[in-house]
Design a protein around this nucleic acid. Structure first.
Length: 425
RNA sequence: GUGGCCGUAGCUCAGCAGGUAGAGCACCUGGUUGUGGUCCAGGAUGUCGCGGGUUCAAAUCCCGUCGGUCACCCCA
């Protein structure tokens, strides 16, 4: 194969039509429930000071230790392409004083994220997600609300294989006791070097290890639920019962932990089986009551999630769902000759301004070729003009499904076409 | 960072007891000097990923390299 001079960087890929429309439609579908629930849109830069992630996400996480796209600017600043959205959004909220107004502050966002990893199915160096954060309340209702909104989004895309898994990691008060107990248990196991190190740095993440021998060794490990304070327990119970009230089934997984250090209490993941053996999460999130203080802000208990747009598209493809997103036109103009092309150019512009999705054949193709293009465009109607029509000031409007064609005065094309499109095919 | 598999036309792939490249789909033209979808006829397109080796001869065998992909660790 003739190698193109340039290709997409390792771990990245392009969305070309019709998948291009599909990924856009997925993002729209994820945002829709949020916009209807009073969430405001926030947009932050694609990169931040490296220290924001180091402190916010956690020095001991894999994200920070080996997966960040970091570089030094010409001015000597250390910056990093954002590996996740929560820390930047919280930073922006604090910087803009959003937390000084009425609480909670509900925000949503959509954009690109970057992690320097070895790519595989569903895991890329550049990915896109839609996120939502509710800042400034401990009310379990918002934890549940977010989960419900996410499930509504998945359902609106037609997905049936997305399941919610929930857990509670406990508050800053109760988690240390669990951490210590787990650590003690893990130290008693015969573990490989890397895992042993992880036991010392972040023992909870060992629970996430997928290797069967590790999972077997964890069978008798202490469980977080035994360490939850009364307040933590009632918070978690409330979240779960609200989910039940909202008709959202969920699964408890006391082993669920996630790769970011800032989570407290509620933790959840949206899983799907179709996106590769290694990863099953199409979205996830949790509560982060201490993150604001970690990055120098006031106490601001909050909860949020991020849904992976490209992973969700993979899940849809795995379920055999048709690609979402509509492109194409309703009307396709076919000119015969230069004079007709000039006339149709104006007609098409008029149609488009009136809100009719329209395209026309260009490049001086023959009638047959132009009609073929009309057919491929998926348009319902073709507007054909040739010399004879020009002389009579008419256009031929052809129904591309039935093949019926009728002459319409040039001045009436817009009205005629609009009327035809308004009636069902 | 580690391992498996794979690189042939725009796409999906065949060809591999070595003899110098094919199919389907897609695309273009014509059959129909003003009408698409079906049909028929014709056409264009490949440094067979790259480099080296073996051989009279390599898409085919060997080595290396690059790229892709899947998986591990971990994550959306």
């Amino acid at each position: 194969m003739n190698q193109p001079a340039f290709r997409a960087p390792k771990g990245t890929f392009d969305f070309v039509p019709p998948r291009g429309e599909a990924i856009l439609a997925v993002r729209d579908a994820m945002a829709e429930p949020l916009r209807h629930a009073g969430y405001g849109y926030i947009e932050t830069p694609s990169f931040e000071e490296t220290a924001l992630f180091a402190r916010g996400v956690g020095e001991s996480t894999d994200i920070v230790t080996k997966e960040m796209y970091s570089f030094t600017t010409r001015g000597g600043d250390e910056v990093t392409l954002r590996p996740e959205g929560t820390a930047p959004v919280l930073r922006a909220a604090l910087e803009n004083g959003l937390h000084r107004g009425a609480l909670p502050v509900k925000l949503w966002y959509s954009g690109s994220y970057y992690r320097y990893e070895r790519p595989q199915k569903g895991r890329y160096r550049h990915f896109s997600q839609v996120g939502a954060e509710v800042l400034g309340t401990e009310d379990p209702a918002v934890d549940a609300e977010l989960i419900v909104l996410a499930m509504d989004a998945y359902r609106s895309l037609g997905l049936t294989g997305v399941h919610v898994v929930v857990n509670s990691l406990g508050s800053e008060e109760s988690r240390p006791a669990y951490r210590a107990a787990l650590q003690e248990y893990l130290r008693g196991l015969d573990l490989d070097e890397d895992t042993a190190r992880r036991v010392e740095i972040n023992p909870l993440r060992v629970l996430d290890d997928k290797r069967p021998e590790i999972q077997a060794a964890l069978a008798d490990a202490p469980v977080i639920s035994d360490f939850l304070s009364a307040a933590d327990r009632s918070h978690h119970d409330m979240v779960r019962s609200l989910l039940t009230d909202a008709g959202v089934p969920y699964r408890d997984d006391p082993r669920l932990v996630r790769g970011l250090d800032y989570y407290t209490r509620t933790l959840f993941e949206f899983v799907h089986e179709g996106i590769g053996a290694a990863q099953s999460a199409v979205g996830g999130g949790g509560r982060y009551d201490g993150l604001s203080e970690l990055i120098g802000g006031p106490r601001l208990p909050s909860v949020g999630w991020a849904l992976g747009a490209d992973r969700t598209l993979l899940a849809m493809e795995a379920e055999g769902l048709p690609l979402p997103g509509r492109s194409g036109v309703d009307v396709f103009a076919v000119p015969l000759g230069e004079e007709a092309a000039r006339t149709l150019f104006g007609v098409v512009a008029e149609l488009r301004r009136a809100g009719v999705r329209a395209d026309m054949s260009v490049g001086g193709r023959g009638l047959k070729g132009a009609m073929k293009a009309a057919d491929r465009s998926g348009a319902r109607l073709a507007v054909v003009i040739g010399e004879r029509d020009l002389a009579e000031n008419v256009a031929q409007v052809k129904d591309l499904e039935s093949g019926e064609q009728q002459g319409v005065a040039l001045a009436d094309v817009l009205g005629h076409v609009t009327k035809r499109l308004a009636s069902p095919a």
